[in-house]
Amino acid sequence: MRSADRVTAVLLFAFSVAFVAGALKYYSWWGSGGPGSAFLPFWLGLVMSCLALGLLVRSLKDRNPGASWLPRGEGLRDMLVVLGITIAFVAFLNITGMVIGTAIYLLILVRYLGRHPWWTTVAIALAAAGFNWLVFVHWLRVPMPEGIIWTF
């Protein structure tokens, strides 16, 4: 936790300095009769840089390295797999379309996480994709990504 705080503090400090600099460079500090568009960003950046410094100082003074917070082993693997498959699901959304994408996503992930029998997995995937289609496409008429496989 201590090392994480240090890294976060440095990142936040750099971010807030860039935020203030960007605001002052590109936007107006004072407009016609009142504060301009750089006014609040400047103060927010300033407050954030102070908070980040506070966090940094506190974590530097801290003698206790704190509990390890990084996931390891199976936990880390599962988290990364869920994240990775989800990113792939979103990245291919325009190709697979929402309904088919949903079904594929669930097939892979439910099977991976739970090792449920195939028929359960397929039933869940189809039911969820069907629900998705019924509510969002059919009922609410949300123009979902259709994909190149199946056009409605």
């Binding site: 869920v82 929402m98 996503y105 996480l113 739970g114 449920h116 998705n132 949300v142 979902m144």
Partner: peptide, 18 residues
């Protein structure tokens, strides 16, 4: 959880999209 979790993600994606 292995069934619930993927379903929640699907709902998140659909919700954010719509």
């Amino acid at each position: 959880y292995s069934i619930l979790m993927p379903l929640i993600v699907v709902f998140c994606v659909t919700g954010a999209y719509s």
